[in-house]
Design a protein around this nucleic acid. Structure first.
Lengths: 210, 210, 210, 210
DNA sequence: CATGAATGAGTATTCATTCAT
DNA sequence: AATGAATGAATACTCATTCAT
């Protein structure tokens, strides 16, 4: 076998990336429990033992992928905001679009950050990590809330609780996207895009000042 | 060990219920894979072998719980409709309320029927069962769609696609409830009730004829 | 369920026969280990527990079937001798024919008495029983040997050791029949009958005085 | 436990041999079903899990032993033929002797290749393998048949069907050897050697041209 | 006598993790 | 640093046998 050693730091980083890439795909496809370390290392052309040079645990790589997912999402949202027009409605639209983008282009991260923990108690054992993820989520929600607040001040939106609305919005989009994950879009005959569009129409009508 | 035997049919039924109850709690907490038959039987004060007197498989009890969950949800929705007033808005409200009730009083069923399949490929092997669940979901969605249609004819609602809106609505509520499952309600500082209320307000405003 | 009680002795005997009949078929088909008590009782329309009213063990019924098999074989051989002509050759032919008959009409007994013990150490634990089976086998072999002896005295056969020849003969016939059991007759393209005929021709030529 | 690791390829091969050796003995003694993977690994001073580093299955090692057995038998027969004299009788004798040798020196292989399948349905699932074994058996039988044919042309033997006689011969020898397996040689008071000798005498007399 | 229910002791197989090299 | 080998602890499922009724 090729006993290539990762002597330079970048080589080591490369190996780690390989492992994460493989793990991401496998976790998204099979879930945490059904993905074995052997599967991950095989896909990465490494030995099972090598895994433990890069990650302390199977759960560790899973947690790392979670953080990466949040990073990506945050970046997408910030970019979207920069490219959006000034009106609050446009900004909200842009954020929603960014979230849908995250779902579509990084679906495997979406699975991991938004869904798969749910049946996976190990994940929540590392409370420090959980708190960090919560903080970062709050930050993003804060951005959304501040846009809503701007919209209220600009008389674009009704007088609604900005943070509460941000959280609600998040849940609503999540829920529609999860329909796709559950394959519920298939048997109902609607695409996610249609449903998201429908949702945004309803929601924006619902919060706009008449 | 307790060597009490379930002699009568009702006792046997009782044992089966015990097993289902235990399994429900464990599946909801740990997911399918991480819940072992031994855990279920221990909680039911039975030996692991006894499990197989009542269910052919581990997946069998899981599927049964799924069907039970749908039964409960359907019943709740039908009851809610019977007790609701005539206006379409009230009816929609009643259904949403029933769904939230399902979530709150039968949360473990909610986990199983709405979330946990997602990381659980075995579940989908029984295609006949999947199709049955899809059909029943479509039925419920059909009820919602027909209410929306009524609302449109009565000029209560805008001219929106009833079925598409029903599906969207389902996703939105689901998403908000899942926030609670994800413990996201905790750190954001809002209760599910608040969020659902907020959502319904936005949504109803969004679809009502001005 | 039908809780019919076997009150009379004959009823009890009937149940026992039912169990043996079912066991015979199942053992012959699946071997000892792969046949479960549950399979036997199900086929006999009895409860698993009832089995133990009639037999102390799973191995016990197996041993009983063995004895039954020997009984049948012995009876067939005795009948064959009574109906055969006077010459020793005819008698030998008749015995061989009886053995083939045993194989063909009571094949399941043949499996049990001649083959299946072989991978089944439990069987040999009951040494008293083993000895009994050996004695009865010796008796039958004794009959064959006495016929050979007669044949020698009558100058039909060469001067061979009668008992040794009887044992050899037994092995040879057994071997040819076992070819059928091993499905070796299938792929070689010959029927058991042909092979047995061929064997008898060779053997009789081989032992006859020229 | 011994945590010695098989590092070199040859060491790994050695471990595999150890496992096969242990399995061979156990299968021959207890049959397939009653031999557990744990028994095999214990005898090989390995953990049960290690078994699966060397074989995919329990049935896999069993099948491998079968092939090994046929290899050995074939080699013994070919060697015997090379060392035998020219007459067909001598050749037949040599082959019979090789078969008896196989039985005596590799008795456990004999059990596995000739007997134990019989009560072992799993074995026959791999139809490709079964056909391969059949083909190789036919080849060996073909060799025997060709010798008989030569003998007929050389006026050593009567005009008999060569292949049919080969098959019959195989069955007859097998049967006599199986007597030993069944412990029938013990209580009758004859050794296998005596019985085989007796058999060969009868058979050769039976097929020789007078 | 008859049985349905129950279980202890197994079974083959898997997998995260360790470790000698 | 890297790995192939090894394993302890599981894990779903089976089955001969027992026993309260």
């Amino acid at each position: 076998m090729n006993k290539q050693r990762a002597r330079t730091g970048s080589e080591k980083e490369y190996r780690k990336e390989q492992l994460k890439k493989a793990a991401l795909q496998l976790f998204a496809k099979n879930g945490f429990k059904s993905t074995t370390v052997a599967m991950i290392t095989k896909k990465s052309l490494l030995s099972p033992a090598a895994f433990y040079l890069y990650f302390t645990n199977k759960i560790a790589i899973y947690r790392q992928l979670n953080k990466d997912g949040i990073d990506i999402l945050e970046k997408l949202i910030r970019e979207a905001l920069q490219n959006s027009k000034d009106s609050s409605i446009d900004k909200l639209h842009a954020i929603a679009h960014a979230y849908v983008n995250f779902f579509k282009k990084y679906q495997q991260y979406f699975y991991i950050t938004e869904i798969l923990h749910l049946g996976n108690t190990e994940f929540f054992y590392d409370t420090a990590m959980v708190r960090e993820l919560e903080d970062r989520t709050l930050q993003i929600l804060g951005i959304v809330a501040s846009i809503i607040e701007e919209g209220i001040h600009a008389n674009e939106f009704k007088r609604i609780d900005p943070m509460k609305t941000a959280v609600t919005l998040w849940g609503m989009i999540d829920g529609v996207l999860i329909l796709e994950v559950k394959k519920s879009t298939g048997f109902t005959g609607f695409s996610v895009d249609e449903l998201i569009e429908q949702m945004m129409e309803i929601v924006l009508h619902g919060i706009m000042e008449e």
